[in-house]
Protein backbone atom coordinates (compact mmCIF):
# COMPACT_ATOMS: atom_id res chain seq x y z
CA UNK A 1 0.00 0.00 0.00
CA UNK A 2 2.74 2.36 1.06
CA UNK A 3 4.66 1.44 -2.04
CA UNK A 4 1.72 2.23 -4.29
CA UNK A 5 1.15 5.54 -2.59
CA UNK A 6 4.78 6.47 -2.96
CA UNK A 7 4.84 5.46 -6.58
CA UNK A 8 1.70 7.46 -7.21
CA UNK A 9 3.15 10.47 -5.46
CA UNK A 10 6.31 10.10 -7.46
CA UNK A 11 4.47 9.75 -10.77
CA UNK A 12 2.22 12.67 -9.90
CA UNK A 13 5.09 14.95 -9.02
CA UNK A 14 6.90 14.04 -12.24
CA UNK A 15 3.72 14.78 -14.15
CA UNK A 16 3.48 18.15 -12.50
CA UNK A 17 6.98 19.04 -13.55
CA UNK A 18 6.41 17.93 -17.12
CA UNK A 19 2.99 19.51 -17.38
CA UNK A 20 4.06 22.86 -16.10
CA UNK A 21 3.45 25.18 -18.99
CA UNK A 22 6.70 27.02 -18.94
CA UNK A 23 7.78 29.72 -21.34
CA UNK A 24 11.16 31.38 -21.10
CA UNK A 25 13.76 33.64 -22.72
CA UNK A 26 17.28 34.91 -22.20
CA UNK A 27 17.00 37.77 -24.68
CA UNK A 28 14.36 40.06 -23.22
CA UNK A 29 14.54 43.78 -23.98
CA UNK A 30 14.56 45.97 -20.93
CA UNK A 31 15.28 49.68 -21.11
CA UNK A 32 14.91 52.68 -18.88
CA UNK A 33 14.69 56.43 -19.35
CA UNK A 34 15.47 59.36 -17.17
CA UNK A 35 14.23 62.69 -18.48
CA UNK A 36 15.12 66.06 -17.02
CA UNK A 37 15.26 69.48 -18.67
CA UNK A 38 19.06 69.24 -18.56
CA UNK A 39 19.74 65.73 -19.76
CA UNK A 40 17.96 62.69 -21.18
CA UNK A 41 19.53 59.39 -20.27
CA UNK A 42 18.49 56.04 -21.63
CA UNK A 43 19.96 52.58 -21.37
CA UNK A 44 19.06 49.26 -22.85
CA UNK A 45 19.67 45.61 -22.05
CA UNK A 46 19.02 42.84 -24.54
CA UNK A 47 19.74 40.02 -22.14
CA UNK A 48 16.80 40.09 -19.77
CA UNK A 49 15.93 36.65 -18.42
CA UNK A 50 12.34 35.59 -18.04
CA UNK A 51 10.23 32.56 -17.13
CA UNK A 52 6.46 32.30 -17.12
CA UNK A 53 4.12 29.57 -15.99
CA UNK A 54 0.93 30.08 -18.00
CA UNK A 55 -1.08 27.64 -15.95
CA UNK A 56 -0.42 29.27 -12.63
CA UNK A 57 -0.17 32.70 -14.30
CA UNK A 58 3.11 33.36 -12.57
CA UNK A 59 6.15 35.07 -13.96
CA UNK A 60 9.69 36.04 -13.00
CA UNK A 61 12.20 38.34 -14.67
CA UNK A 62 15.77 39.11 -13.93
CA UNK A 63 18.35 41.35 -15.57
CA UNK A 64 22.05 41.82 -14.89
CA UNK A 65 22.69 45.49 -14.13
CA UNK A 66 26.02 45.59 -16.00
CA UNK A 67 24.21 44.42 -19.15
CA UNK A 68 22.59 47.86 -19.56
CA UNK A 69 24.27 49.73 -22.41
CA UNK A 70 24.49 53.52 -22.35
CA UNK A 71 25.57 55.86 -25.14
CA UNK A 72 27.95 57.44 -22.72
CA UNK A 73 30.20 54.77 -21.25
CA UNK A 74 31.16 57.01 -18.36
CA UNK A 75 27.48 57.08 -17.35
CA UNK A 76 27.46 53.31 -17.66
CA UNK A 77 30.37 53.09 -15.28
CA UNK A 78 28.76 55.49 -12.83
CA UNK A 79 25.46 53.62 -13.09
CA UNK A 80 27.18 50.43 -11.98
CA UNK A 81 29.68 51.89 -9.58
CA UNK A 82 27.79 54.66 -7.86
CA UNK A 83 24.07 54.09 -8.22
CA UNK A 84 23.24 50.41 -8.64
CA UNK A 85 26.38 49.20 -6.84
CA UNK A 86 26.40 46.25 -9.19
CA UNK A 87 29.17 44.47 -7.37
CA UNK A 88 26.95 44.19 -4.30
CA UNK A 89 23.64 43.93 -6.16
CA UNK A 90 24.35 42.47 -9.60
CA UNK A 91 20.72 41.87 -10.62
CA UNK A 92 17.36 43.61 -10.70
CA UNK A 93 14.39 41.30 -10.62
CA UNK A 94 10.62 41.02 -10.52
CA UNK A 95 8.40 38.07 -9.73
CA UNK A 96 4.65 38.09 -9.55
CA UNK A 97 1.27 36.63 -10.37
CA UNK A 98 -1.38 37.83 -12.83
CA UNK A 99 -4.49 39.08 -11.01
CA UNK A 100 -6.98 38.49 -13.84
CA UNK A 101 -8.18 35.04 -14.82
CA UNK A 102 -6.87 34.87 -18.35
CA UNK A 103 -6.35 31.81 -20.48
CA UNK A 104 -2.93 32.21 -21.98
CA UNK A 105 -3.17 28.95 -23.87
CA UNK A 106 -5.40 30.74 -26.40
CA UNK A 107 -4.16 33.31 -28.86
CA UNK A 108 -5.17 36.87 -28.11
CA UNK A 109 -4.30 40.16 -26.49
CA UNK A 110 -4.77 40.45 -22.74
CA UNK A 111 -4.54 43.56 -20.60
CA UNK A 112 -3.37 42.38 -17.22
CA UNK A 113 -2.09 43.56 -13.88
CA UNK A 114 0.61 41.64 -12.12
CA UNK A 115 1.18 41.81 -8.38
CA UNK A 116 4.53 40.82 -7.00
CA UNK A 117 7.91 41.89 -5.75
CA UNK A 118 10.30 44.25 -7.53
CA UNK A 119 13.87 44.12 -6.30
CA UNK A 120 16.33 46.83 -7.35
CA UNK A 121 19.52 47.82 -5.55
CA UNK A 122 18.81 45.10 -2.98
CA UNK A 123 15.54 46.73 -1.88
CA UNK A 124 12.36 44.71 -2.33
CA UNK A 125 9.09 46.56 -3.02
CA UNK A 126 5.59 45.15 -3.39
CA UNK A 127 4.23 46.41 -6.69
CA UNK A 128 1.24 45.97 -8.98
CA UNK A 129 2.31 46.58 -12.55
CA UNK A 130 0.05 46.69 -15.58
CA UNK A 131 0.96 45.43 -19.00
CA UNK A 132 -0.20 43.78 -22.16
CA UNK A 133 0.32 40.10 -22.96
CA UNK A 134 -0.02 38.96 -26.56
CA UNK A 135 -0.22 35.25 -27.27
CA UNK A 136 0.34 34.36 -30.89
CA UNK A 137 1.92 31.50 -32.84
CA UNK A 138 2.98 29.72 -29.67
CA UNK A 139 4.88 32.78 -28.43
CA UNK A 140 4.06 35.05 -25.56
CA UNK A 141 4.97 38.72 -25.74
CA UNK A 142 4.85 40.89 -22.66
CA UNK A 143 5.00 44.67 -22.86
CA UNK A 144 4.92 47.04 -19.95
CA UNK A 145 5.97 50.55 -18.98
CA UNK A 146 6.19 51.38 -15.33
CA UNK A 147 7.78 53.98 -13.09
CA UNK A 148 10.39 53.42 -10.46
CA UNK A 149 11.15 56.05 -7.83
CA UNK A 150 14.87 55.99 -7.15
CA UNK A 151 14.34 56.81 -3.47
CA UNK A 152 12.06 53.76 -3.11
CA UNK A 153 15.12 51.63 -3.66
CA UNK A 154 17.57 53.63 -1.56
CA UNK A 155 19.42 54.95 -4.58
CA UNK A 156 20.90 58.25 -3.56
CA UNK A 157 21.59 60.94 -6.14
CA UNK A 158 24.32 63.40 -5.17
CA UNK A 159 23.16 67.04 -5.01
CA UNK A 160 25.57 68.00 -7.77
CA UNK A 161 23.80 65.90 -10.38
CA UNK A 162 20.18 66.15 -9.20
CA UNK A 163 19.44 68.35 -12.21
CA UNK A 164 20.62 65.61 -14.55
CA UNK A 165 19.02 62.48 -13.12
CA UNK A 166 15.24 62.18 -12.76
CA UNK A 167 13.73 61.05 -9.46
CA UNK A 168 11.30 58.92 -11.39
CA UNK A 169 12.71 56.48 -13.91
CA UNK A 170 10.51 54.93 -16.60
CA UNK A 171 11.26 51.27 -17.16
CA UNK A 172 10.11 49.72 -20.37
CA UNK A 173 9.90 45.97 -20.87
CA UNK A 174 9.39 44.11 -24.14
CA UNK A 175 9.94 40.41 -23.69
CA UNK A 176 9.05 37.52 -25.97
CA UNK A 177 8.89 34.11 -24.34
CA UNK A 178 9.11 30.77 -26.14
CA UNK A 179 8.02 27.36 -24.87
CA UNK A 180 10.67 26.03 -22.57
CA UNK A 181 12.31 22.81 -23.65
Amino acid sequence: MKKILLTLAFAFSIMQVCNAQLFSTATGNISFFSKTPVEDIDAHSKTGLGVMNIEKLEMAFKVANPSFEFHNKLMQEHFNEKYMESEKYPFSQFSGKINEAVDLTKDGEYKVTVTGKLTIHGVEKGRTISGVIVVKDGQINIKSDFKVLVKDHNIEIPKLVTAKIAEEITVSVDITLLPKK
Binding site: S24, A26, L49, G50, V51, M52, N53, K56, E58, M59, A60, F61, K62, A64, Q93, S95, G96, K97, G116
Partner: peptide
Amino acid sequence: SAQDDLLNMIEKET
Protein backbone atom coordinates in the same frame (compact mmCIF):
# COMPACT_ATOMS: atom_id res chain seq x y z
CA SER B 1 6.21 28.41 -3.77
CA ALA B 2 6.24 28.68 -7.51
CA GLN B 3 7.12 32.37 -7.95
CA ASP B 4 10.36 32.07 -6.07
CA ASP B 5 10.75 28.85 -7.90
CA LEU B 6 10.68 30.60 -11.23
CA LEU B 7 13.36 32.99 -9.97
CA ASN B 8 15.43 30.05 -8.81
CA MET B 9 14.99 28.46 -12.18
CA ILE B 10 16.39 31.59 -13.83
CA GLU B 11 19.17 31.64 -11.28
CA LYS B 12 20.25 28.17 -12.31
CA GLU B 13 20.23 29.07 -15.97
CA THR B 14 21.98 32.40 -15.62
